[in-house]
């Protein structure tokens, strides 16, 4: 079974010049852009609700801890860089062995994000703040919760990528899945890059 086992997809070392190619499968991008469009609608719905009650939203937003959001942003950025490095590592025969550790680091950063998010939610509940408290907190819990759900899916995806990266060789299909999974993780990061300023910072 060596005919379908390759070192890298599309043999980039022999590609002439800058050959344009789709990272992962085409279907992955329909899912990723579909998800991004759904979140884009949520951003607009949140802002239109804010238009109806700017004073109430500003009052409730002041209850948030921006430091938690900022730390979580940095955690996701570190995890994304580690996934980029792991994707590069699996393309290099000499460096492939580093990929599982890089992905494990990304996984830990993602888990750290969830830990801080849990701390943040616990702090709110401790102060009697729930989704029923106000429109702002309803949006806060729903949007950050939905993002956290994507992050949990992303962690499951990273676990699969770690398994693939630990194999002595990856098939072309596994390479393509690897790239798609990495892009899904970057999407989780990308959505937070808008959610954090939108909910925590914009006043």
């Amino acid at each position: 079974m060596t005919s379908d086992v390759i070192d890298a997809p599309a043999s980039p070392a022999t590609a002439p010049g800058k050959k344009r190619r789709i990272p992962g499968e085409e279907g992955t991008w329909i899912f990723i852009f579909g998800d991004m469009c759904v979140f884009a609608v949520f951003f607009c719905v949140y802002l239109s609700a804010r238009m109806a009650d700017p004073a109430g939203f500003a009052h409730d937003q002041a209850e948030l801890n921006q430091n938690f959001g900022a730390i979580n942003t940095v955690l996701l950025l570190v995890s994304s860089l580690l996934v980029v490095l792991a994707t590069r590592a699996v393309h290099s025969p000499a460096l492939k062995r580093h990929a599982p550790r890089l992905l494990a680091g990304a996984w830990l950063c993602g888990a750290g994000f969830l830990g801080i998010k849990a701390l943040e939610y616990a702090e709110k509940v401790h102060h009697g703040i729930t989704p029923q408290t106000s429109d702002f907190f309803m949006y806060y819990f729903v949007l950050t919760g939905l993002h956290a759900f994507h992050l949990v899916l992303g962690l499951a995806m990273l676990t699969v990528l770690i398994r693939f990266a630990s194999k002595p060789e990856m098939s072309r299909g596994q390479f393509i899945f690897f790239e798609g999974g990495a892009c899904f993780w970057h999407m989780v990061d990308l959505l937070w890059l808008v959610l954090f300023p939108l909910i925590f910072l914009v006043r």
Binding site: A13, L77, L85, H91, S92, A94
Partner: peptide, 22 residues
Amino acid sequence: LTSLASSRTPADLLRTSATAVW
């Protein structure tokens, strides 16, 4: 990615525009 086949050290992984972007 085109030159990764000849990469030898982990530091080579960081020699990408993605690092500057990060």
